[in-house]
Write a protein that binds this DNA or RNA. Structure first.
Lengths: 346, 346
DNA sequence: ATCTGGGCCGCAATCGTTTGCGTTGCCAGG
DNA sequence: CCTGGCAACGCAAACGATTGCGGCCCAGAT
């Protein structure tokens, strides 16, 4: 078999279409664009469309962006795509954007503010029309600066303190409350909380919700029962549980800040020969994929990730349509899915 | 708190820099670009750089792309980002691209050829300089067409029959062989294979490797022991195992085409009250995240995903550098990680 | 017959860079 | 003093699309 001949043929341009249809490129442009099509005679429009079709004309988005300073593209700022929490959100976003011909540029920040800044810079220079941010921290100078500069954004999953931005998040309050209530119903009275990082809005929201729930239900309200994780990660979750255990704080159940933290607990169980749920009940948060196959299957509060993403996409499209629109935020209500990591206290 | 005043100020352009430095934009352009900097006097170059610095000039990639027909961007064609197999690959790719100032446009195809075609079309119109393809099927008309057109591509994870393209894949042969050998050593003689889709190169490579291994080790070589899945998914894996079981084919272990298929088996274990590994040993392929926390932890052959990605990135950069370079392909050697889903036959 | 106005379309500028080519000024060599 | 050559830089034309403006033509009104 011989190597195929490689011929690089440049794509047809608007001039080609115009020439073939016997009109000026300007007319061709107007004919091709549904917005401006009424400006040209129906017959010529047809001719142009046919010509475009026949030579397989595809508009050059680069040239279009240069002229119009728009791009039909939005930026998507994610801490780490490797975290199974985010892919479904991304899908949700992409799907609603696709409906109106938009697409998304995905970038990872690794939770590194410097990296985040350069990534956002590169997104902006690519003329993205808006940003969907999944990396918000409560104090987030970059985001307030961007907001001042008038860049359109929506926050997903987390928020920024004191910044009036459209956002879509899960109802942490409701979720945590369901988790604690579930454990209380099983008979637990000393429940610990492995809190997420307190620089993130979800971290504090869930911690606060936890304290409220505990108090409302009349359970043991011991400050020692709350320990904070530095990151939303397994290793941090494991660390936190170790600290809790090593401090000798008695407890029979823990509600973790999220699933990753909960899974970190599993590591400690393995280390120390503890059994779950016999020795300790655990409930997570998020319901990431494959939890049902864990050992034991993790009880968790399920948040609709895909919808988180699709709502965020819709919100961003809204503010692109009408930048003056008052920031609308949506709160998605989670649900408890109980599996086998929770049981009455041994 | 009052709403911040929103002022949208257009970014400084090359003309601004030139004006401030008192030179022509062309000179400024040359001064800014390390490649052409020798063409301008060192002093003026310094002036230009200082001016650019002082007003925070950032070149406009859109305009640059339009002029140069390059974009420092490559396309990344993924079947589904939600599959935990791919995020690490993506990270590997992104990391090596970032080293040389490139970045990646990620698109999902959902395994839908039509969608794939439009996605690729949109990538190409965005002037991507090459494609990294993770969706290859053995027969893949689109890819041969693109190759004929001289589009630079590298294949990752899967290949297409009879197409001389750089690719990076795991050594399926070695991996499967290790899996089968491991099971044989445990005493299994009737081992089944839940094969991946035979339209994909990995599907057939692993199935073939399986047959070879079985024969080499003198195990039962019964065609009924091989059943094919339509997709690389849990549900298909479950279906396949059900078919195998319902056909009454006797076996004590199965090597799955990949981890997802293996996890599908867990579902039918739950359905039918079977225990793993007591009733049936299972080994997967890929070592996707969180397998160690499954019930039982899944024995699997581990392939270095991150390296899969980073190698693919390097390969693509190579062919961008020198399109005439002879296609180099790399084969990554996997390793067996045995956990608790395999044991001697009951 | 002239004027008006709308429908349709072409002209040309523009978006921000890059780059082939020409021009300038300077210096060395003849 | 003239020429050749080189270094440094400016000019202007691209890249491919969009769009304000103005011109043309023709119908209908006056």
């Amino acid at each position: 078999m011989t190597a195929p001949k490689i011929v690089r043929v440049s794509a047809p341009t608007l001039r080609d279409v115009a020439q073939m249809a016997g009109v000026h490129p300007a007319t061709a442009s107007r004919a091709l664009n549904p917005q401006t099509r009424p400006l040209v005679n129906a017959d010529t429009a047809r001719k142009v469309l046919r010509a475009a079709e026949s030579i397989g004309y595809q508009p050059n988005p680069i040239a279009r962006s240069l002229k119009t300073a728009r791009s039909s593209t939005v930026g998507l700022v994610i801490p780490d795509l490797t975290n199974p929490l985010f892919p479904p959100i991304v899908r949700g976003i992409e799907d609603v954007l696709a409906l109106v011909g938009y697409s998304a540029w995905i970038v990872n920040t690794d939770n590194d503010p410097a990296r985040e800044e350069t990534q956002v810079e590169s997104l902006r220079s690519r003329q993205v029309e808006g940003l969907i941010i999944a990396t918000a921290r409560r104090e987030h100078p970059l985001l307030v600066r961007l907001h001042r500069m008038g860049v359109r954004m929506v926050l997903v999953n987390r928020r920024v303190d004191g910044l009036e931005l459209p956002s879509v998040t899960a109802d942490d309050d409701a979720g945590i409350s369901m988790a604690v209530t579930h454990l209380a119903a099983l008979g637990h009275t000393r429940i610990a909380h492995l809190a997420g990082p307190q620089q993130t809005s979800t971290g504090v929201a869930r911690a606060r919700a936890f304290r409220h729930a505990v108090r409302d239900l009349g359970l043991d309200d011991d400050p020692a029962l709350i320990v904070e994780c530095g990151y939303w990660s397994e290793t941090e979750g494991a660390q936190a549980l170790r600290r809790l255990l090593d401090a000798g704080t008695r407890c029979t159940a823990v509600v973790a800040g999220n699933d990753l933290i909960a899974l970190g607990c599993y590591d400690v169980f393995a280390e120390r020969g503890m059994r779950c749920p016999d020795d300790l009940s655990v409930v997570g948060f998020n319901d990431m994929p494959f939890l049902d196959k864990m050992n034991p299957p993790l009880t968790t509060v399920s948040v609709p990730h895909y919808e988180l993403g699709s709502e965020a996409g819709r919100l961003l499209l809204d503010t692109i349509d009408d930048p003056e629109r008052v920031p609308r935020s949506v709160l998605l209500t989670p649900s408890l899915v109980v599996r086998a990591s929770t049981a009455p206290p041994g």
